[in-house]
Design a protein around this nucleic acid. Structure first.
Lengths: 195, 195
DNA sequence: CTTTGGTGTAAACAGTGCTAACATATCGGA
DNA sequence: TCCGATATGTTAGCACTGTTTACACCAAAG
């Protein structure tokens, strides 16, 4: 074994992606530079092009990782308990993720020209969507509409949280305040009676 | 009168903002360049700095205009009729705006490092929020929570629309499909009975 | 051992945000 | 009316960016 690490880096591709994630989370995507990633990984400016066809392709990989991570966190968060509280738990966890990784979250849902070229990214997004719909699966009739509504609501809430709009308009921004917003919607979305 | 237009441009500031809006809407914000704006306005690369302290400041002005325009369109859309249908009309109009001006809308809600420096921009956002809350004004009790929920929902829906997620998961993406998603939420948010 | 293909480098190109030094036009006051 | 101060434009340049091209090197297959 010993994946020989003399001249050839060994696994530069994942090293670059690791650096990229760290840099995006620290400094946001506006100032993100491929050359800085290369410096961070200790290689030349042209090296990344052996593994990613463009800066956008590297950012797509970063976003894909973000989707996977969010998916896994939500899967764990709402595993136990009944549908309704699973739904609420996941909503809170979702917004928590967006808050802990604001720049990454913005990248995930930001404008991706040519998004269709990165099918791994698209698939990761679809997996997340499917998981969010999970607690709504047994809801009555107009399933699609409720599913979309669910995601739209949580996503919009997360975005407003990132813009500090929640803090501006809610008494506090802890999980209880969030739940006060989420509760009535959950009842509607799931077709259950308020408890 | 006759704002003398020989050497000094006359009103370069608004001319630059006009060009910037057009360029953002056409090509998105990723490739947006101050120099292109300058070329488009027929001035040198350094001229914009007499009127905007940075590229970000010019983009802030573009975003501010977007907020004002959306505000005005919504104000007109839901002017007549009762609260409930006014709310629904405005939701549809809101998402319609996002779809007709995707890049501009993304800019408006995108990451704005140092957003606090552009108070005009912040105020324009606040005016929009106030207008969206208008139909909910007379709703019972937990007003703030419902108001936030309302905006979050519409905003999230608009974002998903821009990512083509609605087309992917809804039977069609006309206004009727949108209303199917919006209806049950509207009832919940406004504290009225479904009709 | 040799060849071949994958992976790194250095150098260059065009384009970028932004600044500094300079030029000109406009306007308020002597 | 002249005249300086100021606002608004220009040119030239810096440091940086994404990307490409030509080249160097190493690993493994034949």
């Amino acid at each position: 074994m010993s994946t020989s690490r003399s001249f050839h880096h060994g696994d530069l591709k994942t090293a670059l992606a690791d650096s990229a994630v760290r840099i995006v989370e620290q400094s946001g995507v506006e100032t993100f530079s491929l050359r800085e990633v290369a410096r961070d990984a200790g290689v030349s400016s042209a090296a990344p092009y052996r593994h990613f066809s463009s800066k956008e392709a590297l950012l797509a990989e970063v976003a894909r990782r973000g989707f996977d991570q969010l998916h896994d966190e939500l899967a764990e968060a709402g595993a136990s308990s009944d549908r309704r509280s699973s739904f609420l738990t996941r909503c809170v966890a979702y917004i928590g993720f967006a808050r802990r990784h604001p720049a990454l979250y913005r990248l995930m849902f930001g404008a991706f020209p040519n998004k269709h070229r990165y099918d791994d990214l698209v698939e990761a997004g679809d997996r997340l969507f499917a998981l969010l719909n999970d607690p709504l699966a047994a809801s009555p009739s107009d399933k699609a509409a409720r599913a979309i509504g669910c995601w739209a609501f949580v996503h919009g809430l997360a975005m407003l949280a990132l813009d500090n709009q929640l803090r501006a308009h809610l008494p506090s921004e802890d999980d209880d305040s969030l739940l006060a917003v989420l509760q009535p919607l959950a009842d509607t979305l799931m077709g259950t009676e308020p408890t």
